[in-house]
Design a protein around this nucleic acid. Structure first.
Length: 248
DNA sequence: AACGCCGCCAACCGCCTGCAA
DNA sequence: CTTGCAGGCGGTTGGCGGCGT
């Protein structure tokens, strides 16, 4: 037996929202809030709409903090990076982009970024032979660096951090002494200059990831990382930690 | 001007999850 | 523990507008 529909389709209005409906919904929520019950809301607001439809309309269009307009290059980079790492978890990705909705991000990806990425991937394949680790999150801005307690994860995860992320914050590369403690083999100039682990590759401006002892990689969106994960700041913590001693 | 194609995006659909009874 | 409900989410659809022929 299938699940019963959330509302009677014969009795509710469907299709595009009119300005009058928008006004009704917006006014009601601004005056009374959602009341934690979207199903009852349309009736209370005087709308002949399904509760789910109201919720979607509010979240994707009427909310006051919605960011309108095209996506910036920085947002594109964040979306692409997160998609590569966590897949189509649009709500998680959208949560990293202030004012963007999951629907926005999803549409943007499907209509533009997917093609863009596939184009750049093809170009990249044609011009380079170095493999790009899929488990490394790429950041276009240090704003999106992780905010975890580095000391805490030091005991659990082995961080692999591209120190080039510090460039924008004018941080000092880690010392050659600390590098030489744990690194053998040849390093690229970017790895050497910024203390990169030899088993990381630079795939963009900035990225960071960690892996645990089982080889699982954690980053902004991985399943075994708490949803409380916060990107807001912390460059200082990252900069002050000597990752070279923790390289895999 | 008419038509077809294509891209964009708002909206819908249905599944999954969390929670309360 | 089971069941049913509501919210959340990702996939998909369909209408609309722009553009080329």
């Amino acid at each position: 037996m299938g699940r019963s529909p959330c509302c009677d389709k014969a009795k509710v209005k469907r299709g595009p929202w009119s300005p009058e409906e928008d006004t009704l919904l917006k006014n009601y929520i601004q005056n009374h809030g959602t009341g934690g019950n979207w199903i009852a809301l349309p009736h209370k607001a005087g709308l002949k709409r399904c509760g789910k439809s109201c919720r979607l309309r509010w979240l994707n269009y009427l909310r006051p903090d919605i960011k309108l307009g095209g996506f910036t290059e920085e947002e594109d980079n964040i979306i692409s990076s997160l998609y590569v790492n966590i897949g189509s978890r649009w709500s998680v990705i959208a949560s990293r982009l202030h004012g963007r909705t999951d629907n926005d991000v999803k549409n943007h990806w499907n209509t533009k970024l997917k093609k863009k990425l596939s184009l750049s991937h093809n170009t990249s394949n044609a011009t380079t032979t170095s493999a790009v680790p899929i488990n490394q999150i790429q950041f276009s801005s240090p704003t999106y660096l992780p905010n975890q307690e580095i000391g805490h994860y030091q005991t659990i995860y082995k961080p692999i951090v591209d120190h080039s992320m510090m460039v924008d914050y004018q941080q000092t590369p880690i010392s050659s002494d600390s590098k030489s403690n744990s690194v053998n083999g040849n390093m690229s100039s970017s790895q050497e200059n910024w203390g990169l682990s030899p088993n990381t590759s630079l795939i963009g401006n900035n990225y960071a990831s960690w892996s645990d002892n089982a080889g699982r990689v954690m980053d902004s969106g991985s399943d075994f990382l708490t949803e409380e994960f916060d990107f807001r700041q912390v460059l200082g913590e990252v900069a002050s930690f000597d990752y070279s001693s923790q390289w895999l």
